[in-house]
């Protein structure tokens, strides 16, 4: 039994499925409570129903996009863990990046070929630790923060005016992306000896195809008003980039 077989075994489905089921129950509880509270406050049930229906229809296509993310990660982490992470709490761009960072600390890469049980459990732990802060912050500070906002003392968060915080976030992600793209360029030029240009060019090709695909999806979304593509664009661009790797190695 290979590690990937173990990662997609019944026990793993049971562990991950139980957590997904717990979160599904939480969603139902919040939904029913909000519905009852809305009715008790005299809100129009037709409007509440409209909000639920709109949200259901809005979410179907992006959810299929998220499913593509599960497929993308399943080759290295098995199916159940990416299923759990992308059903609950996670997001594709976050999960992949953190998993890669954890693999690096173990001297490995995010790949089915090199995945070991040690690497997997460490990757899974780091994925959980890195993205728990939103839940912690809302639990500790959420009540006071919302109370202060409702008193009108702090309205900057909802402001439309651009602040340095927005720009800093963009810059932070630019820095993150640049580190990885820089490493692919360096690996191509000096991966097999400094300035020999005999290193692996596949990552650069894959990144270029994914970027081009993303550009195409963005253009269709913005210029052709195909906004529904937004929910698919990252996952579909990744799959196209990954397909380029397969074609390049035929």
């Amino acid at each position: 039994m290979t590690v990937l077989d173990q990662l997609s075994s019944g026990t793993m489905y049971l562990i991950c499925g139980a957590i997904v089921a717990f979160v599904a129950v939480v969603c139902v509880i919040f939904l029913v409570r909000a519905w009852r509270a809305g009715k008790a406050m005299g809100m129009d049930t037709a409007r509440m129903k409209q909000a639920v229906t709109a949200s259901v229809t809005f979410s179907i296509l992006p959810s299929v996009g998220i499913l593509l993310g599960v497929i993308a990660l399943s080759g290295s982490l098995g199916i159940p863990w990416p299923w759990l992470r992308l059903s609950v709490i996670g997001a594709l761009h976050y999960e992949t990046q953190v998993a890669q960072a954890a693999a690096e600390q173990l001297g490995s890469t995010l790949s089915g070929d090199t995945m070991t049980a040690d690497a997997f459990s460490t990757i899974a732990l780091l994925m959980s630790v890195c993205i728990m802060w939103g839940m912690i912050l809302i639990s500790i500070f959420g009540k006071k923060y919302l109370a202060r906002l409702s008193r009108g003392k702090e309205n900057k968060a909802g402001s439309e005016k651009p602040s340095f915080a927005d720009k800093a976030m963009t810059a932070m992600f630019i820095g993150m992306v640049s580190a990885y793209l820089g490493s692919y360029i360096g690996a191509l030029i000096s991966g097999e000896g400094r300035f020999t240009f005999r290193g692996d060019w596949t990552p650069l090709l894959v990144a270029a195809v994914a970027a081009l695909a993303m550009a195409g999806f963005t253009a269709l979304s913005e210029k052709k008003r195909m906004r529904w593509l937004d929910g698919f664009s990252i996952a579909a661009s990744m799959l196209l980039g990954m397909a380029a790797a397969v074609l390049a190695h035929l």
Binding site: L181, V209, A215, S237, M238
Partner: peptide, 27 residues
């Protein structure tokens, strides 16, 4: 396997377009 070995470059390629277009000179 070449596809699954290149999940990370695929992600950063897509993200590069998303973020670089916001400020290409900075990037």
């Amino acid at each position: 396997q070449p596809a699954f070995n290149n999940v990370v470059p695929a992600l950063f390629g897509a993200m590069a377009y998303m973020y670089y277009r916001k400020d290409i000179r900075l990037a």
